[in-house]
Design a protein around this nucleic acid. Structure first.
Lengths: 353, 353
DNA sequence: GTTAAAAATGAAAGCGCTTACATTAATCTA
DNA sequence: TAGATTAATGTAAGCGCTTTCATTTTTAAC
């Protein structure tokens, strides 16, 4: 592999001059520039990025931490981050936190030790304090899907409260009164905010929040499934359930179908996030769009702007959700709750056998 | 940030000695080792990985090229690659090819220019020739989901022929005789192999392959949807369709459901890949398991073994598929084909309106 | 107690770049 | 046209490590 020295020798100029034309910095006459370009072409010269990094104290790499690499949620985000960054000739180093405190912390340290110029972090478990400390450190950090006091300018997040309002508002507008809610794990701010939106929507319609209609899930299908089972088990009537994300909605609906309940005829559902579902799924889930790709791109933009000084790039912190109406919510008919109560009773009995 | 120099000064030893204890190479007395460890701890020393890379001519990074970062297929593979590699303290740089020739090539060059120690490549479009040249280059390359003549030892792939055999064999065993097939794009070897498996299974049952029952898809939902439409349009009878991957099966089933056909009552389906579907999908797709995670891990193993000289690691090239029986295939009843022909005729007419 | 062999350590030359600073060439001013 | 600017280029000192080779210290053998 040709080095910068080979180029400078062939072109008959100094190392510094070659460096200048490679990086497009400083003044170089057209004639000299041409000579250097010719030499580079002849030698098929590619700068050694490692040496560049060491000398310039910049690795041109951005670390991205997500909790899962599989699953439908992070893919679109990763895609946007990768393409935005690569277009700027930066590379992305990925690490997964696997929703585990130790692994998540480990991943951050790993990325840091790799000399990333910046980190884009979707922290599930890490505490606010840790993140505040992290952001105070030398390596710039953008937080995605989260907003933390004192470092708001580093956060890219969704207006989850509004999303919760939208979701529950939608079923309320369809006449439902008794609405169950399966939340995300409440140690997470987004789960709490979505729940708060739910409560506010209820309140706005003069309905009291009922603990009996509430279940704390885990943002995973299993949680939705179990939550639905628990809710049904309680033998209380309800005609709709709003889930704090689509995966829990999927689990919850699965249970209903297993029990012979029809969706949305017997029971309406709303999800959250708008993850891609297979085309043949039925009913198609009404949900709240979480523009996670846009947020990914925005995080990349922040890095481009603040770390790589591309001031042409715009930035915004907060994204607004939007309701995506599909097929899983039906106008409320008063008979529904009765059906559900009966079903629940039956289910409950059969479970005990 | 403390440098190796600071450590050597504090410990009262030379740079070389510190380097030896950091890398666990060469001979160092216990006493000295302890002094160095103490100094490192006191200074919270972390080796600068960039400098290490430059000096050792090894970046400890592995480039991974996939065609899509989103979508259900590559996630599990990425997960395994990342965790295997990170456990060995290597980092993975990702790049997406977006199923586009130019972008795929671009991504390879990008990764190469990044000084990766090795590449794990899932090439969709790149030609065999290009890949052969690539493998002949300085940077070791493992090909995943592909086998190319002359570089078999670099390929990790599935026995697609066997998979095709399994899929079609399964519907044949359920008495189906007229079986439609929606293939992947035939410029891809895996698509051709799966199709070949289909043909062999047919032959083994004394059934001739019928072009009328064949549609070349694109491995995407849309292709399955369109393929199904085309097949129905032909007005020929068939009672089952095997799809070269799950996503096309999803699209094809979606069309059937839209047309009022019942699956599997009116028509049976088999997919391929066993991608994760939402729990509430119905019917659950019978498919062929493609152990893509295992293949990802194996590719990582190859790199660990051949590039990072970890000889404790085993390796195998070819993976065997397995049938995953779920709910989308039913025993053939002779009435089915008639139903389908009628439906097709109706559909065809209604389409013309 | 020698001496040879083995073990432990250190000195120093890079790895391929960037960049502050120095130097020289070109252009401008009066 | 001398002197002052400004533009263009070069010199050389790192960046923080690894690694070869030389040197010193320890251990073993007789």
């Amino acid at each position: 592999m040709a080095t910068i020295y080979d180029v400078s020798f062939l072109a008959g100029v100094s190392l510094a001059t070659v460096s200048r034309v490679v990086n497009n910095t400083g003044k170089v006459s057209d004639k000299t520039r041409q000579k250097v370009h010719d030499a580079m072409a002849k030698l098929d010269y590619r700068p050694n990025t490692i040496a560049q990094s060491l000398a310039s104290n910049r690795s041109n790499s951005v670390g991205v931490l997500v909790s899962q690499l599989d699953g439908p949620f992070y893919g679109p985000m990763m895609r946007e981050i990768e393409s935005a960054l690569r277009a700027a000739n930066k590379h992305v180093i990925i690490a997964a936190g696997h929703s585990d405190a130790a692994q998540e912390k480990d991943a951050v340290e790993f990325l840091l030790s790799r000399g990333c110029d910046a980190l884009i972090v979707d922290a599930e478990i890490l505490s606010n304090e840790y993140l505040q400390t992290l952001c105070a450190g030398k390596t710039p950090v953008v937080l995605i899907n989260r907003h933390v006091d004192g470092i708001e300018d580093r956060c890219v997040h969704l207006n989850n409260l509004e999303g919760g309002l939208l979701a529950t508002g939608h079923v309320l507008e369809h006449g439902h009164k008794r609405i169950a809610y399966i939340s995300g794990p409440l140690f997470k701010l987004d789960a709490r905010e979505r729940l708060e939106g739910h409560k506010q929507a209820l309140k706005a319609h003069g309905i009291a929040f009922d603990e009996q209609l509430f279940f704390e899930g885990d943002f995973r299908e299993e949680g939705g499934y179990e939550g639905m089972a628990a809710l049904l088990e309680r033998g209380i009537g309800f005609s709709a359930v709003v889930c704090a994300n689509d995966q829990m909605a999927s689990g919850a609906i699965a249970l209903c179908l297993e029990k012979g309940l029809q969706v949305p005829k017997d029971i309406s559902f709303v999800g959250f996030d708008n993850i891609p579902f297979p085309r043949y799924i039925s009913p198609k889930l009404t949900t709240v769009c979480n523009p996670i790709q846009d947020m990914g791109r925005m995080a990349a933009n922040w890095v481009l702007r603040h770390v790589y000084d591309d001031s042409s790039i715009d930035f915004c912190h907060r994204f607004e959700p939007q309701l995506v109406v599909r097929e899983s919510v039906l106008q409320h008919r008063s008979s529904t709750e009765a059906v559900l109560s009966v079903t629940a009773a039956v289910t409950s009995t059969s479970n005990k056998m």
